[in-house]
Computed example of a mutant assay.
Amino acid sequence: MQHIDCRKQHWIKTDLPAFIMGIVNATPDSFYEPSRSAERVQNMERALKLEAEGADIIDIGGESTRPGAAYVNTDEELERVIPLIEAIRQRSAVPISVDTRKAAVMQAAFKAGAEMCNDISALSDDPALGMLIAAEEGSVVLMHKQGVPQSMQNAPQYKDCVAEVCSYLAERAAYAVRCGIAPHRIILDYGIGFGKTVEDNYRLIAAGRSFTALGYPLLAGLSRKSFIGAVSGAPPEGRLAGSIAAALYAVQNGAAIIRVHDVAETREMLLVLKELQKYGTN
C-alpha cells in the first residue's frame, strides 16, 4: 500500500504499484488534442471521466509547456484554471494538482480546493511559490528542465544526464525543505521531454532508482511524448501502446506516480503488474 499526503494530512492511498495522475489541459495548444479544451464544461467532464476510470489525482494545466509553447500571463492562466477547479469541486473531492509555476495562480487554486502544485520550474521561477506551498501545507512536484519551453529542445546537452538531473533535484528538494515544505509532501520528476534528447529520456527512465534513492517519491510524465514517437514513428494519437510500455518500465524502476492521458488503460496495466508481482516479477 502506498500513501501520499496531498495537503494538510489529506492522505491518499493505493494498493496498485503506482498512483495514476490524469491530465486535463485547459489550454488551446497542448500537444495531445483529446486532452485539451478551452471549454470549462468539457474540461470538467473530462476530469470526472478520468476520476471514474481510476485516476487518483487530476492534474489541471492552464499553460502549455510543450516544446515551443509561449508563456501565458497570470490573468489568463487564472481564468482558465480557477473556475474549472471550482466546477470540479462542486461534483467531486478528487485530489487536484495544478500544473503552474506562478504563486498567484497556486494561491487562488488552493483557495478553490486544489491540493498539489506541479511546478516544471521546481520552485525556481517564482520566489514566492515555495513559501506559499509551505504555508498552505500543500504538496509539490519538483521537475527538472533544461532551458525554457520555447527553446528547450533546440540543443539540449549534458555531460552525464542522470547525474546532473539527480543533483539538480536533490538541490531543489533541499530548497523546498528550507522554504518549510514538509519532506513527505515533496515529489520529484525527472522531466521527460523538457530539454532532453531522445537518448536522455530513455536513460532517465531506466535510471529511476537513482532518483528514488534521494528519498522522495518519483513522478513519471511519459504519456504520448515524442521520445516514444522517435522509436515507433507514430504521432501522438498513435502512441498509446508505447506510453503503456514506458509507464510499466518506469514503475518497475521506482516511479510512484504516473502522469497520463489514458487512465483506464494505465490502470489495467497496473492491475496486471500487481498480479504478476505476486509471483515474483519485479
Rank of each mutant, 00 (worst) to 15 (best):
Y168A: 01
D125N: 05
P156G: 10
A112N: 11
Q107T: 08
A114K: 09
V81L: 07
M116Y: 11
I133H: 03
D125F: 04
G180I: 13
I88R: 05
A103H: 03
V141S: 05
I133K: 00
R178F: 03
V177Y: 04
A114R: 05
P127D: 14
Q157F: 09
R185H: 15
A122V: 10
L142H: 07
L169A: 03
R80N: 08
P95D: 06
S139Y: 03
A109R: 04
Q157S: 14
L78V: 12
A170F: 01
I186T: 11
Q157M: 10
D160W: 06
S92M: 04
A93P: 06
D99H: 03
L78P: 02
R172I: 01
I120R: 01
A134R: 10
G147F: 01
A93H: 14
S139A: 15
A122H: 06
N118F: 14
G180H: 11
C117P: 01
A134V: 11
M152P: 03
M131K: 07
H144I: 08
L129Q: 04
I133D: 04
E86R: 13
L142Q: 07
P83R: 04
A104S: 14
V148Y: 13
S151V: 12
I85Q: 06
E171V: 02
V94R: 06
C117N: 14
E115T: 01
I96S: 00
K102V: 11
M106D: 08
L169E: 02
D160P: 02
Q157V: 15
I82N: 05
P156K: 11
R89D: 07
K111H: 10
H184M: 04
S92N: 08
M131E: 12
D99W: 07
D126T: 08
K159E: 15
G180F: 13
D119Q: 06
V94W: 04
L123M: 08
T100H: 08
E76G: 00
A103L: 08
K102P: 13
M143K: 01
Q153S: 06
M116H: 12
D126Y: 05
A109N: 08
G113D: 07
L169Q: 01
V81G: 02
I88Y: 05
I187H: 10
